[in-house]
Design a protein around this nucleic acid. Structure first.
Length: 276
DNA sequence: AGCGTCACCCGGACGC
DNA sequence: TGCGTCCGGGTGACGC
């Protein structure tokens, strides 16, 4: 369930090298691409990817929303991990991984594996990254994303906070977990309407979104950990997945409701809904 | 415009 | 133990 902090962690480790993902991929040149699950490739096609990528070098790596963006010599490779995807750099003699549905082989014998147990992830090869990420909302952690801007965005809509914050065209990078966490930090009910917030509430929400994301970054995204990465699954969550357990701030049992087909966790005391 | 619903997947949790 | 069933998660498509 990688959200912004988890994707950012993958980007950092693939760029600089890291303990769980191997050495940097920047500078490596693609030799061939193995596609075992053609539907992994969103565009142009498995064959298209296999024809276009060989010979191109990874010049750089960045993130936009939940997308990883590999800048290549001629094209741009984008990967969306969805919930269960992960990327690792392996050597020539690495043991096989039955969930590595797409593998990018480099000329030096190493490879970048896209493992994805649930097969929801997507690979895109396009000329310009904007073709895929052009419609995304602002980056919540960018310095130019201000409380004032968020206030204008919220006021321009008439929607419940939870589904609106999950909407990647509204704001890029928040998923189900950090949205619940941010709303709890802000003391705002998930069903509050976006144009009903006071200026003070907008500012608190802005702060809370950034605080929740930065907390995730500090833990290298380990606050979430991938579902299928063994071990810990350590939780630093205040509400997510804690239904029935006491709110860490006031002790009231955390509630779970479904909003737009999404499990939504909140404290009925700290996050009151006016008029109820 | 906004909302609801479905489809896509499969490991894990749960019930028997 | 094994078997069946359901759930969840991000997103896009579709209908109202």
């Amino acid at each position: 369930m990688p959200e912004l902090p988890e994707v950012e962690t993958v980007v950092r480790e693939l760029r600089q090298g890291g303990p769980t993902r191997g050495a940097s991929v920047v500078g490596r040149t693609l030799a061939r691409v193995t596609v075992r699950w053609p539907r992994h490739i969103a565009t142009p096609s498995a064959r298209g990817v296999q024809q276009r990528l060989p010979g191109q070098t990874i010049l750089g790596l960045r993130r936009r929303g939940k997308y990883l963006i590999f800048d290549l010599t001629h094209d741009v490779l984008l990967i969306h991990l969805k919930m269960s995807g992960d990327l690792t750099v392996v050597g020539p003699d690495a043991p096989p991984d039955k969930h590595a549905h797409t593998v990018f082989h480099f000329t030096d014998g190493s490879a970048l594996r896209f493992s994805d147990t649930r097969k929801f992830g997507k690979v895109f090869v396009v000329g310009q990254a904007e073709e895929i990420v052009g419609g995304l909302g602002p980056e919540p952690l960018e310095p130019d994303f201000t409380a004032k801007q968020l206030g204008r965005m919220l006021a321009a809509r008439h929607r419940q906070l939870k589904p609106l914050l999950l909407d990647q065209t509204f704001l890029a990078g928040l998923g189900n977990i950090y949205t619940d966490e941010a709303l709890h930090l802000a003391g705002l009910h998930p069903l509050r309407l976006s144009d009903s917030l006071s200026a003070a509430e907008v500012r608190t929400l802005w702060q809370s979104i950034r605080r929740a994301l930065r907390a995730g970054l500090r833990h290298n995204g380990a606050s979430i950990d991938w579902v299928y990465r063994g071990g810990g699954y350590q939780r630093h969550f205040r509400v997510y997945g804690r239904a029935g357990r006491p709110c860490l701030r006031c002790g009231t049992p955390i509630r779970r409701m479904v909003v737009g087909q999404r499990g939504t966790h909140y404290c009925p005391t700290c996050q009151p809904l006016p008029g109820k």
